[in-house]
Design a protein around this nucleic acid. Sequence first.
DNA 1: CTGTATCCATGATGATACTG
DNA 2: CAGTATCATCATGGATACAG
Lengths: 121, 121
Amino acid sequence: MGLPVRKSKVAPPPTCPLSEVLGLLRGAWAPNVIWQLSGEARRFGELRHDMPKISARVLSARLRELESRGLVTRRVLNTSPPSAEYALTPLGRELLPAIDALANVGRKLIEEWEASQREVA
Amino acid sequence: MGLPVRKSKVAPPPTCPLSEVLGLLRGAWAPNVIWQLSGEARRFGELRHDMPKISARVLSARLRELESRGLVTRRVLNTSPPSAEYALTPLGRELLPAIDALANVGRKLIEEWEASQREVA
DNA sequence: CTGTATCCATGATGATACTG
DNA sequence: CAGTATCATCATGGATACAG
């Protein structure tokens, strides 16, 4: 017999709300899309312009997904040529601080890593 | 960002430190692994036990990845049979609040969504 | 027990071409 | 301009078998 399995004292079962959000952020581009919308509403083409590497197909998919979750609104403008504006809903904006928190850890991660590289060097 | 090679040839570069963290959380299980380690150090088998659906292959991969980023430590115990304990580093712990923030938004997201469903019904 | 190697299924993404 | 359809590609996860 090996060691007994210690019961985890960590209360929260592995999943649920976290996965809900992560499911949204998992897409390689979703976080950036949200980020791009943190300011004012932006048109489809503007988003493409701001994220040159994203394909229309994926951008469209992300926007639809975020829209269906109520994080983003889509407003078709009566212009010529027609255009569409996307914006974060209040609910969507609630993601921003959390994303920000992640980004901060990311910066720290990079700093730490670079520091460790200098030590080695 | 000068971090270790991100091998992904497909998911090209979203930008900023955010991606760095999201790269870590992207894996379907990474957040749960981190979550499971939020308490005390846990052994490989314990982690498997706590996340019944994860395969050894993936768990191993996630742990290696987190370890290489300096978020998790691996300690081999001199027992018989041999065992290994994993724990969050201080840097790794800094992810917890951010993950928590995400989870909170997740809960809200679920609530809002369910509410909207009731309205429709 | 703690992993790692292999094979296979699935999903996400980019590129391109095309429609409204 | 906005958005979709199709195709090929690559990454990721599961299952199983196996090694230290």
